[in-house]
Design a protein around this nucleic acid. Structure first.
Length: 511
RNA sequence: GGCGGCGUAGCUCAGUGGUAGAGCAGGGGAAUCAUAAUCCCUUGGUCGGUGGUUCAAAUCCGCCCGUCGCUACCA
């Protein structure tokens, strides 16, 4: 039986259109999912949209639409983006779906029955205009002594009934859990933040609202809707059939292996979610990994500055695989990064077109011309040949370890080292000279290059599925020979290769 | 304010006690199979400052400066 692996993106909030940050999370998750499949795992890759809450209600109202219609429209945009980006999700869940509503209510009931939810009152400084509460330290005091919100709105001390989750009771259990699972949160810096947050003392969490209606009703109390995070986080088990886990074929994927999230929502996943699950007697996910944020040409991305990068426009101009590559190559995964047009073009031209694309082209065109377009015999290899191949064949082993740490940039760097070594190899061996002096040796060299390229292309499939499909076809690798495990078997000599054509054209800036 | 991260070549960063590294950018050369792509060599840093521990510190400790993040219910 195949080992299984469950990976998720956050469900995206539908109060605005998708931007490059959403695309980034999805692409990274997709690479990890595809890598695990490549490595023989049975993968469940979940994504979707988060559709409840006051902001959606408000955004819909501004457009004169019902919340449901508005959410459906924006959700479709996210789904379209995922499809355009070639995201290989197994399920796309929406929090307005019946299966999710039932799942949330069941989870709530389970936690309530276990005595971890109680009815209390939430109080604080509330701004009627901003429709939200502010903390004491965010407020300024006006001349007449009244309190003013950061937005300039007036605030009043308000008290509303609310259900609370007994988060404070879980403080010690959570700390114990983090100590027993040092790799539960990544990267390391997020773990430190979270630990210091918990150690400063946990308060009970308000998990229902009465101030708006667009949400999942609390079981047995229709005046309340669930706190959006309780609603949103539950999606991960809704998709697996919760609460009907006895009859669900998918429940075997729980606990999830990885929740990939943006750093801004690290705490919700690493703290509240485990607490909810523990309270419900369910297993806790194995790992939460937070990636960083993108700036644009050195500036923070914002609607008012007008520098928001729309992923589909990037794809339209540069092509999908170069964009996927750039996003994962440019920045250490887990840290923040900067998008710049020039940096993208440099990566495209230097690394895709020159290093890899040209390597494939120069190798394959010689095979085509000098080997009658057929894969040469393996022949008698010398030390140089073995040196290159032995490094290349280690790639899957190195990649497995890196992918399990979500060190996607390291994987690409590791692969690029082999690509550079291959370019050095072809120059030093100079098969174009051997053609005149030693045909047998020329065949060996070209064969070494084709075999090395096959390993490279196989390993790069998760990052650039479209381009690598094309390259593998040119290398004579059939679709049933593209798993990591297939690398153990060499392609038989004599196989006819199709005529090569460029995989990564250089990008020339229009005048 | 408290806690934590970071500060290494022009740029982006790797390097956690023992003669300063990579990629890109810059300079010189080789080659001509290839998407004028590639390969080889090379310029360049008193590793933020300062005091200390040590035979030896970018690497450990103190202080200072700069910068960034977290500091709860507004995704």
């Amino acid at each position: 039986m195949k080992p299984h692996y469950m990976i998720t993106t956050p469900i995206y909030y539908v109060n605005g259109a998708p931007h490059v940050g959403h695309a980034y999370t999805s692409i990274a998750a997709d690479v990890l999912a595809r890598f695990k499949r490549l490595d023989g795992y049975d993968v469940f890759f979940l994504t979707g949209t988060d559709e409840h809450g006051q902001k959606v209600e408000q955004a819909a109202q501004d457009k004169g639409q019902s919340a449901q219609n508005f959410a459906t429209m924006v959700s479709a945009q996210f789904r379209n983006m995922a499809d355009q980006l070639n995201i290989s999700y197994n399920d796309f869940i929406r929090t307005t779906e019946e299966r999710h509503v039932k799942s949330c209510q069941a989870l709530w009931q389970k936690i309530a029955d276990a005595g971890h939810i109680y009815l209390g009152a939430y109080e604080g400084w509330y701004s009627l205009r901003d429709e939200c509460y502010y903390g004491e330290d965010e407020l300024t005091t006006a001349e007449d002594g009244s309190k003013i919100a950061p937005t300039g709105a007036e605030v009043k001390w308000l008290k509303e009934p609310s259900y609370f989750f007994k988060l404070s009771a879980w403080q010690d259990k959570l700390l114990e859990f983090y100590e027993q699972h040092p790799h539960f949160i990544g990267p390391e810096s997020r773990r430190n933040e979270l630990l210091s947050f918990i150690k400063s003392g946990l308060r009970d969490l308000s998990v229902s609202r009465t101030s708006f209606k667009w949400g999942i009703p609390v079981p047995g109390d229709d005046d309340h809707v669930m706190y959006v995070w309780f609603d949103a986080l539950t999606n991960y088990i809704s998709a697996l059939g919760y609460p009907n886990i006895e009859n669900s074929d998918l429940w075997r994927f729980w606990p999830a292996d990885l929740h990939l999230v943006g750093k801004e929502i690290s705490r919700f996943h690493a703290l509240y979610w485990p607490a909810f699950l523990m309270a419900a007697g369910l297993e806790v996910p194995k790992r939460i990994y937070s990636h960083g944020w993108w700036t644009v040409e050195g500036e923070k991305m914002s609607k008012s500055v007008g520098n928001v990068i729309e992923p589909l426009k990037l794809v339209e101009e540069f092509g999908l695989d170069p964009v996927r590559f750039f996003l994962l190559r440019e920045v250490p995964f887990g840290g923040d990064g900067d998008y710049s047009r020039q940096a993208l073009i440099n990566r495209m031209n230097n690394e895709l077109a020159n290093d890899l694309g040209n390597l494939a082209q120069r190798t394959l065109s010689q095979v085509m011309r000098n080997c009658e377009g057929k894969l040469p015999e393996i022949g008698q290899r010398n030390q140089d040949d073995e040196a290159l191949l032995s490094k290349a064949i280690l790639l899957p082993i190195l990649l497995r370890e890196q992918m399990d740490r979500q060190a996607l940039h390291e994987s690409l760097e590791t692969i690029w080292k082999i690509i550079r070594a291959s370019n050095a190899y072809i120059d030093h061996q100079a098969p174009w000279t051997l053609k005149k002096t030693d045909l047998e040796r020329m065949n060996v060299v070209l064969r070494v290059l084709v075999d090395t390229l096959r390993i490279i292309a196989t390993c790069l499939q998760p990052f650039m599925p479209g381009a690598m499909d094309k390259l593998l076809t040119q290398l004579g690798v059939t679709e049933s020979e593209r798993q990591l495990s297939d690398l153990e078997t060499l392609i038989p000599a004599g196989r006819e290769l199709p005529a090569p054509s460029g995989i990564f054209p250089r990008f020339i800036e229009a005048e």
